[in-house]
């Protein structure tokens, strides 16, 4: 599969979950996990450009597909606007759900560069944040929408 733009090839057990492949095999520990039942969304990555829960995909199933994780957002030393937005608007506290939220936010803005509050809430509704109460996450995504080139002048 391709992970963050690089082709990776590994021999793994068929049962290995994608999230463990990313974390344990590739050392990409930015993707976290928080439940067993596909409910928390902590493990969201982009799978062929769409948000997917990587705890509910086998690594072997991802063979031939494109996976992007939070580690890919920063590009040539420049933070993605969603990363900047989360910093500017206090879109995170403990940081645990943040990677998944950032990936969903990125995918949303790629499809809809000017999403409404309701659209943003819907887009992150499969991901639980226990810290922020979501309003600041919504504002963070709006910030990114309003600063498509980032905030560094």
């Amino acid at each position: 599969m391709t992970v963050n733009g690089e082709v990776v090839t590994r021999d793994v057990e068929a049962r290995l979950l994608l999230v463990h492949f990313l974390r344990d095999e590739l050392g990409l520990t930015g993707t976290h996990w928080g439940c067993d039942t596909s409910n928390c969304g902590t493990c969201v990555v982009l799978y062929d450009d769409e948000p997917v829960k990587s705890c509910t995909v086998l690594a072997v199933m991802a063979g031939g597909h494109d996976v992007r994780t939070v580690e890919s957002l920063e590009w040539e030393g420049q933070l993605d606007p969603v990363q900047q937005g989360f910093m500017e608007c206090h879109g995170l506290q403990c940081g645990f759900c943040t990677s998944g939220m950032l990936m969903s936010a990125r995918a949303l803005l790629d499809r809809d560069p000017d999403p409404s509050e309701a659209t943003i809430r819907e887009a992150i509704s499969g991901q639980i944040c226990r810290c922020t109460g979501y309003a600041s996450i919504v504002r963070s995504v709006r910030w990114a929408a309003e600063h498509p080139a980032g905030g560094v002048g």
């Binding site: 049962r15 979950l17 067993d36 039942t37 596909s38 509910t56 995909v57 086998l58």
Partner: peptide, 23 residues
């Protein structure tokens, strides 16, 4: 196994234990 969102959670909880998966 198609999307896997019914089967894989059941497999994780070991409520489903198939020997083979056909993707």
């Amino acid at each position: 196994i198609a999307g896997g969102h019914s089967l894989l959670p059941m497999m994780k909880l070991r409520l489903a234990n198939p020997e083979y998966l056909v993707d």
